[in-house]
């Protein structure tokens, strides 16, 4: 089957900033594909190129079988987009927003009215459909945007950080809607996020993007398997120091003094590790065992935390605003 999205060496340069440095990937029809990466990684820029709003500096891309530069109108007909920043008409009601959207996409009459009702039900906004959007909460606006992107029955749906800035409850809700959308036959989803749990919860396959480049691509399972094994957190007395330990493939000293060890099999490695540490004069007060997550994959590949990016802005140059 023809891929829903193909990108080959896609690049975008803004003046001296190279926001996207040659990304290549394919998205299969019907799958949920996620771009996972920190702020400034180039996620939005990629979405804008794929949705025909930015011209690539180099490389090419096809969406729903059409080239984004050569046949933008054909691409636009077949895609739905939820942008990172809101793009609703705040003065109009939810229903009016959906109606205008439908008409712009060439729909009308009872079919449009029916579709509007259907998408409003999907995101549970029917009771407030005739209120102006400016009275909506962030979560309601997000849901309305999801609904709007479905009105014209797109083949490929782009969601740029669909749950950014939403509270945990609303996020879980939005995830449900997104899963429900996927059920709609043939819909392919391309979503970007910097929440690893979001990628884990929703995506069939994940591309980890950092500083404009894809540094890993695969199913969540595959990516985690690259780390393999299990993770041990040890809290030694005093500050932990990494040194060669039996059965340990990788060791990191965490800022809080703990040691993070990658081991093949925790059950057999742990006694030997503790023994070796004790022999070296280091007592361990606490041990935590954890399965690796996408965050660990990111750490392994970049030496940095994906999660850190959420809470504190990195030093200059870190966010890519070089």
């Amino acid at each position: 089957m023809q891929p829903a999205i193909v990108a080959e060496g896609l690049k975008k340069r803004f003046g001296r900033v190279e926001a996207v440095r040659g990304v290549s990937f394919e998205v299969r029809p019907g799958e949920i594909f996620a771009f996972l990466g920190p702020n400034g990684a180039g996620k939005t820029t990629t979405v804008h190129m794929l949705t025909t709003l930015l011209r690539p500096s180099a490389g090419r891309a096809e969406v729903a079988g059409f080239d984004v530069v050569a046949a933008p109108t054909e691409v636009r007909r077949r895609i739905g987009v939820v942008f990172q920043d809101p793009s609703l008409d705040r003065e109009l009601t939810a229903r009016e927003n959906l109606y205008i959207h439908g008409r712009i996409y060439g729909l009308g009459g009872p079919a449009l009215r029916e579709k509007i009702g259907e998408v409003l039900r999907l995101v549970e906004l029917e009771p407030v459909a005739d209120r102006p959007v400016k009275q909506f909460s962030g979560g309601m606006k997000r849901r309305l945007e999801l609904a709007r992107a479905l009105v014209h029955r797109p083949r490929v749906l782009f969601l740029d950080e669909p749950t950014l800035g939403l509270d945990p409850q609303t996020r879980a809700h939005v995830w449900d809607y997104i899963r429900a959308m996927k059920v709609e036959a043939g819909l392919t989803l391309f979503l970007t996020t910097h929440y690893m749990d979001e990628a884990e919860a929703l995506a069939d396959r994940v591309a980890i993007i950092d500083r404009g480049e894809i540094i890993a691509l695969g199913t969540v399972e595959e990516l985690i398997r690259r780390i393999g094994g299990e993770l041990l957190y040890l809290r030694p007395e005093g500050k932990g120091r990494c040194r060669p330990l039996p059965g340990v493939r990788n060791c990191r000293e965490l800022p809080d003094g703990r040691l993070l060890l990658e081991v093949e099999d925790a059950a057999s490695a742990l006694p030997r590790v503790l023994e070796a540490l004790l022999a070296g004069g280091q007592r361990v007060r606490e041990v935590t065992l954890r399965r690796p997550t996408l965050n660990d994959v990111f750490i392994r590949l970049t030496g940095r935390e994906l999660r850190d990016e959420l809470t504190r802005p990195g030093p200059a140059g870190w966010r890519g605003r070089r």
């Binding site: 987009v81 809101p86 793009s87």
Partner: peptide
């Protein structure tokens, strides 16, 4: 500023 222009730019019309 409110982003609605993007909605028009991405439409096939």
């Amino acid at each position: 500023q409110f982003g609605f222009l993007k909605e028009i730019l991405v439409a096939p019309a």
